[in-house]
Simulated assay, not measured.
Amino acid sequence: MKIGAHTSIAGGVSNAVEEQLEYDGNCGQIFSHSPQVWQDPSIEESEAAAFRERSAEADVEPWVIHSSYLVNLCTPKDDLREKSIDSMQQEVEAADRLGVEYVNVHLGAHTGAGVEQGLDNAASALDELDVPEDVTVLVESDAGSGTKLGGEFDHLAGILERSDQDIGICLDTAHLFAAGYDLSTPDAVAETVDEFAEQVGLDALECLHLNDSKHACGTNKDEHAHLGEGEIGAEGIAAVVNHPNLRELPFVLETPTEDGRGFAWNVDRARELREDWS
């Protein structure tokens, strides 16, 4: 089972591998810089080499770089669009230097431009990127609040249809649930996966963010919970990690650190739910 957590690059990007091993993870996700400011990744080649070598030695892969929270591909504002494109270009180049397979991004918000125009804006922004051959941009599903796009499978399908890039999809279980896609029972998981397969296509699905939700289905509230401890629950999370069309994908945790439990507890929990099902 490919299961890991979002880890820190503080003190050097290779430290993210050591932190992942502390959690007993074997894949993972990082930020290349602080996600709340406009900042280019500052990773020396020696650091990148150490990260590549340590990941290979420990067999920790694949890795995902999560883009800045400021990126808004859907925006109708020219200045924000250019900053978003530049930020994403820096991210895919950092991924290439690090040997990281994926760069994950949210579509952002259309802020009144409308869904169709927002999707057009996002696709054309993605098409301006010069993505290295061994890197894939993943568009992440969203919780669906306000004018943010990505909360509906139609939005994800629309990006794939519009863009000339070879884009993949990352589904976040908490976001799906918040957006109204039920995952709380095996039947609900099967129905949601079937709907995704029909509207978007399973070939596009490359990764899952595995998170429980502190809020009910369809509330558009994005607050993550420990696996099996939230509104999705143990039965739903178990159905996700064991679904035949999902179980071979990498699962990346963005679960909280609270109640004396953190990523290590959730990595163990995911494996338990996989084994219990078997």
Rank of each mutant, 00 (worst) to 15 (best):
G230W: 00
E82P: 00
Q117G: 10
Q36P: 02
S213I: 00
E116A: 15
P35T: 06
Q89F: 05
V13H: 11
R81W: 01
V131I: 15
P250N: 06
S87I: 13
P244H: 07
G25R: 09
R269V: 10
E206D: 10
L80Y: 07
V139R: 14
E101D: 13
G25N: 08
A10G: 11
K221A: 12
I232D: 01
E18A: 15
P186Y: 02
T257H: 10
C27K: 05
E53N: 14
F177N: 03
E161W: 01
E248P: 00
L126E: 09
I85G: 05
E229H: 08
H215Y: 12
L98V: 13
F263K: 14
E44V: 10
S55C: 08
P186V: 00
D187C: 04
A58N: 07
T136S: 01
D59T: 10
G236T: 02
R54C: 06
V139Y: 07
L210N: 11
D203G: 15
F196V: 02
G144F: 05
S14H: 11
A10N: 13
Y23Q: 11
L80R: 12
D154G: 09
H106V: 07
K2W: 09
D164Y: 01
E44A: 15
W265I: 11
S141K: 05
T185Q: 02
D172L: 04
G28K: 14
P62D: 02
